[in-house]
Every structure is written in structure tokens, then in C-alpha cells.
Amino acid sequence: MFTLGNLFVLMLLASGCAWLWHNHGLREKALERVKQHCAKLDLELLDGAVALKRIGFVRDANGRRRFARVYNFEFTVTGEQRHPGTVTQFGAHSMQIELAPYPFEIKTQPSAEVIEMDQWRQEHKRWRP
């Protein structure tokens, strides 16, 4: 038969397992959000993982202190350098993703036609005083 002490220990273990399972689900949500963010910015998420940095109280957008989980991850632009990033998660909602400064290219369409300056001036004479 179970004693009250045995029942307490069993409930404590069950609560711990449920908390770990819940945290794993929240980490997976944070990972999915980071993957979406990196894809949108044309970045590559390295190692395909986020790592729990800390659990504690963090200020939200309204300035209130709320219980949050902060995860670290690394990304790359060129494939040569690793850059750190963090995602702050309040419950199941990813609130903020911060990326370290990283180099990026401004993508422009190459011009198919090169115009000589003298030719342009002749075509636009009427605009000259």
C-alpha cells in the first residue's frame, strides 16, 4: 500500500517529468520561430538548435517584468563566421529575437545597358539651362 510519503514523492516525480516535457515543447516552438526568422532574413541557422541560456524575469514590451526563457543560437551569413543570437520567450510566445551585428550584401539587379555620359547629355539637352 502507498503511504502518504510515497504518494508525495511519486507526485513530485510526476510533476518534474511534466515540467521537463513542457519545457521541451517550448524549446521546439522557439526553434521553429528562429528558423522562420532566419529564413526570412536569408540567414543560415547553425547546428539547427537553440540552447537554454536562462530562466528568469525579463521586461516585456510594456516594461513589466514577466517570467521568461532566454535561448541562445548561432547563425551565419557567409558560412565562414558564426554570429550569436538570442530569442526571448514568454510562455509559448516568442517575444523578441536579437541578432548580433553581421555583414550583409545589398542585392541589386545588374543593369543590362550601360549609357555613356555624353550620349545621356545629348538626349537630355532640354533640361540644361
Score class of each variant (00 low, 15 high):
70 V>K: 08
107 K>D: 07
77 V>D: 08
96 Q>P: 00
50 V>P: 02
1 M>K: 07
12 L>I: 03
85 G>W: 00
14 A>I: 03
98 E>W: 10
124 H>T: 15
28 E>F: 05
109 Q>W: 10
67 F>K: 08
64 R>V: 14
55 I>H: 07
19 W>N: 06
99 L>D: 03
76 T>E: 05
87 V>W: 00
110 P>C: 05
71 Y>W: 15
118 D>A: 15
8 F>R: 09
31 L>R: 04
20 L>A: 08
41 L>A: 11
122 Q>C: 05
27 R>F: 02
68 A>N: 03
49 A>I: 07
24 H>V: 02
81 Q>C: 06
38 C>D: 06
129 P>M: 13
79 G>W: 06
101 P>N: 15
124 H>Q: 14
66 R>E: 12
48 G>I: 07
33 R>P: 00
22 H>V: 00
25 G>D: 02
22 H>Y: 08
19 W>T: 05
95 M>S: 11
101 P>W: 09
25 G>W: 02
102 Y>T: 02
43 L>S: 04
15 S>W: 04
79 G>T: 08
89 Q>R: 04
103 P>I: 02
38 C>S: 06
73 F>V: 06
39 A>P: 02
55 I>D: 10
3 T>Y: 03
120 W>G: 06
55 I>M: 14
47 D>S: 11
79 G>E: 06
123 E>N: 14
95 M>H: 10
127 W>Y: 15
54 R>M: 11
112 A>Y: 09
109 Q>I: 14
106 I>A: 11
56 G>S: 11
97 I>Y: 03
129 P>F: 13
26 L>S: 01
17 C>A: 12
126 R>N: 14
125 K>V: 12
109 Q>Y: 08
54 R>F: 07
65 R>E: 13
86 T>I: 13
37 H>W: 04
105 E>Q: 10
19 W>F: 05
66 R>T: 10
120 W>V: 09
96 Q>V: 10
34 V>M: 01
43 L>R: 02
111 S>D: 11
15 S>H: 03
74 E>N: 12
93 H>I: 11
24 H>P: 01
97 I>P: 01
42 D>A: 13
23 N>V: 01
37 H>A: 13
74 E>T: 12
121 R>E: 12
53 K>E: 15
108 T>M: 12
129 P>E: 15
56 G>V: 08
52 L>E: 13
46 L>W: 02
31 L>I: 04
120 W>A: 15
15 S>N: 05
118 D>V: 11
6 N>P: 01
61 A>K: 11
126 R>C: 09
50 V>Y: 01
62 N>Y: 08
54 R>D: 13
129 P>H: 14
107 K>E: 10
67 F>P: 00
65 R>F: 15
128 R>C: 11
37 H>R: 06
37 H>Y: 10
75 F>S: 01
21 W>A: 08
110 P>S: 10
47 D>L: 08
63 G>K: 11
56 G>P: 02
100 A>N: 07
40 K>P: 00
91 G>Q: 05
114 V>S: 14
